[in-house]
Amino acid sequence: MSDLQKEVSDLERKSATAARLFDIRLIIGGLFTLYGVIVTIAGLTASDADLEKAEDININLWTGLGMLALGLFFLAWLKLRPASAPEPEE
């Protein structure tokens, strides 16, 4: 093994990322669920002017529902398959 490989292997053993870094699925799930709810509500209360601007598609409603579905998907994935963090070494 070269010096570089020894040095990096050593750092890998001391690294704390695997044990301590939070799961990004929680953030994606949370943010998109929140955005989904906000935008869906904007869609449910859309004015005629809004609808006309978007070619008679209730784009807020559809986008909101899509984002909500994505957010819930990530939360469900996290719930069903939680990350198995390796045991911290200290």
Binding site: L11, K14, S15, A16, T17, L21
Partner: peptide, 20 residues
């Protein structure tokens, strides 16, 4: 939130070579 996972320079520059 990511701050507490940074212990070594490898954590800071390469996420400890440990992401999925």
């Amino acid at each position: 939130a990511a701050r507490r996972s940074v212990k070594t320079s490898l954590d800071f520059f390469l996420s400890g070579r440990s992401l999925p």
